[in-house]
Design a protein around this nucleic acid. Sequence first.
DNA 1: TTGAAAGCGCTAACAC
DNA 2: GTGTTAGCGCTTTCAA
Lengths: 337, 337
Amino acid sequence: MMSNATMQDVAQRAGVSVATVSRVLNGSDKVIEETRERVLLACQELDYSLHLAAQRLRLGKTNTICVILPFLTLPSIVERLRGVQEALLDSGYDLIPFSVGTPELRDSRLFDLANRSRTDGLLIISMPINDKQTARIIKNDMPVVLIDSDKPEFNRVNVSDQVGGRMAAEHLINLGHRKIGFISSHLENPLQFSSTLNRFHGYCKALEAAGIPINPSYQKEGEHGREEAEEMALSLLKQPDPPTAIFASSDTKAVGVLDAAKKLNIKVPEQLSVIGYDNIRDAEYLNLTTIQQPLFQAGLVGGETLLRLIDQPRMGPEEIILPVELVIRETTAPPKA
Amino acid sequence: MMSNATMQDVAQRAGVSVATVSRVLNGSDKVIEETRERVLLACQELDYSLHLAAQRLRLGKTNTICVILPFLTLPSIVERLRGVQEALLDSGYDLIPFSVGTPELRDSRLFDLANRSRTDGLLIISMPINDKQTARIIKNDMPVVLIDSDKPEFNRVNVSDQVGGRMAAEHLINLGHRKIGFISSHLENPLQFSSTLNRFHGYCKALEAAGIPINPSYQKEGEHGREEAEEMALSLLKQPDPPTAIFASSDTKAVGVLDAAKKLNIKVPEQLSVIGYDNIRDAEYLNLTTIQQPLFQAGLVGGETLLRLIDQPRMGPEEIILPVELVIRETTAPPKA
DNA sequence: TTGAAAGCGCTAACAC
DNA sequence: GTGTTAGCGCTTTCAA
């Protein structure tokens, strides 16, 4: 029945004041053992539990952390969110995720959430922040950590796409390839992040370091998507002197490349090596060699950083770069002699 | 700077009392237009926003809904969560997801959360509830909706696994198969749900209806997992008169079956038809024929139901059954003559 | 139509 | 060590 016992009720039952109950519950050492036990017993008997709203009002603290992220359809986003969950697990903070699909929604969310009476901190995953929102966040003194995003005003957790791109290309080079294609979404996209571009830069650097000239006819950019990538791969592979290896800037595109190879009856990896980027779940099923980003870990580190930032608001904004990893599976091999 | 304006501040600036500000903000019609405008202006000027904790304390309502679910590693869980998000989008409720990996964690979470000062309602996804927790929830008068779970005491949103299992088998039968294998995790698992078992029942019914005798040597059960399924499929396919089609009780297992076929040099779908269950993302990549559950919609309906339940606590527990759907791709075909 | 004031449940400063 | 009490910001009677 009455399961909404208040501290007052507990105090009464234990024959003490509410202050004492509060002390016991907050682990004050200024309570005599016998009293403590009486209080704890009363709590149990009444099935008491703290009224969070009351505590939060009194403390002026929400014990809540909000996360703004794109729709959860992307496995990479979910994986990062899992990391955040993990970081907050025993922190006493509630995590509220807000999915926003459009820049407008993102801005209006940010506007709402950049408010200390709403949340103690904000984690923003894979979303660009404009200057207006940046100003508001700073004005409101809201602790913020960015994951997979770049804005020097804030603490952020990122991976080096350039290193990843280089790593992918170097893997192919080390295998003996010299004709290495590159497929990506549009490199110059003002609304997008520069991750694709950085991967491309890494690819270029690797080729340069190996003394391989960069061949524009081995590069294709276009819309994101499996089918689109298949088209791009088709045009790459149908040329007179086709590449013997293709680096796709995402696993989804790599799947499209695989589709193209199948369609042209080109055997992978015997006749064509394919490497992707992301290590999405599907990559494992398809035995796709790829570059793995530490997604979960990025969420974890992001969450931990935010927790620290809330405790020490003076902590300067810094960028944490997490390492990427080459996952070798069965779509890459030395080129045929 | 001071972005923590209180209602008091607004009242002062607008030259009215806090009561009036509250009325304006809550859309009371008993406020003269001119006053309303003054208040609204003051709100804007001060960048006022409601202190949620204060409101919640006063109202005795948390405006929060908690969701208990298994780890977000499963795409099916994420998809349902997305549906819940959608349902709560403009409801004014905050959604807090709690991932629990073990029955112990689940129970302790449930214990914490079955508390009206904590949350206004509980959504429980793909998790069995024991009698003790059931009693507690009912005693605390906590509104609860179960998704993909069965406990007649509560409102629940489910799909008919039996219909799905039957649908899968019938698809194969309609194609002309009569030697139809079935691979699943253990059918009798006290801790688990009966979804696997129900799919099996559906499979049996379809065979019966078609007058096909049920052949135990065409059935395998074992641990969940791709490799485990591969083993099971191998033993099924290596027997003297192997099945010409295999129904795997999950897509993950179907992938294992595909692995087995590849290993034995059996062509899919020419020599072997394979159908899965779930329509996970990987299924699309692999062109796997499968049974799709309305995951997102289950979350959506579950969320909406919970919202209704919170408004009308007297709403009796009912079960909503959502239809499944056959997704035909390229791993099923008529058997070779 | 508006204002004054009580009180939601908690914590912490102060008094004893 | 423990109790008394003010007050966090809000909503809502009750009175004017």
